[in-house]
Design a binder for these strands. Structure first.
Length: 193
DNA sequence: CAAGAGATCATCT
DNA sequence: GATGATCTCTTGA
């Protein structure tokens, strides 16, 4: 079943954890790309110095201020897109970064998109994932309770997971060490470290 | 195997 | 004009 908007309206940490073992689906033209989520990070809101929205409401962070259940896709380092899901109430800017999935369907297409044949190298990182799933800024603001990009609960119980500090946020002061990254234990498909 | 540099651009100061 | 919620390749031991 497709995850409803109420799912995304919950506290961000809760959403990040509950997303593990759920399925990300992108209907891209004639191809359906599917992956099982194995790694996420929570960005808690304006007080979280690692969250883009801590810098205020800008053109870029606008989507995070909107209602839950929409995609926040941004471009970074001149190369990569990052996929986030907006959480919590309207006007409260928080989101969950999808960092890695286990490829399930559309694998041949992912291999082409990534120019790699290694299954564990297709979507094991936020930039790789977006490349494999053909996700770019044209999907920024997209409703993930609609038909193109959405998530599904396929009845799998919540996998065992670990919490670690988030990656690449050394600038975030006391927030950089908070255990807000969640990874499925024993998955081969998480990003390194 | 670990460490470091380079790639490249939208966004904000 | 500086700087990233990254990735890949090269280097050197």
């Amino acid at each position: 079943m497709k995850l409803p908007r109420t799912f995304y309206r919950q506290p961000t940490e809760e959403v990040a954890q509950q997303l593990l073992g759920k399925f990300l689906i992108h209907r891209h033209g004639a191809t359906t790309l599917t992956g099982r989520i194995v790694e996420t990070e929570a960005y808690l809101g304006p007080h979280d110095l690692a969250c883009h929205a801590s810098k205020g409401r800008t053109k870029r962070t606008e989507v995070m201020f909107g209602p839950a259940g929409h995609a926040y896709v941004y471009f970074i380092y001149g190369f990569y897109n990052m996929l986030n899901l907006v959480t919590e109430a309207k006007d409260f800017p928080a989101a969950v970064l999808i960092r890695a999935v286990e490829p399930v369907r559309g694998i041949e297409r992912m291999k082409q998109n990534r120019k790699s044949d290694l299954l564990h190298n297709l979507a094991s990182g936020p930039g790789k994932l977006c490349q494999a799933f053909a996700i770019d800024r044209s999907l920024n603001g997209a409703d993930v309770c609609a038909k193109v990009l959405y998530l599904e609960d396929r009845g799998e119980p919540l996998p065992r997971f670990a919490a670690t500090p988030r990656i690449g946020v050394d600038y975030a002061g006391k927030w950089k060490d908070k255990p807000l990254r969640f990874v499925v234990r024993d998955s081969k498909f998480v990003s390194k470290r």
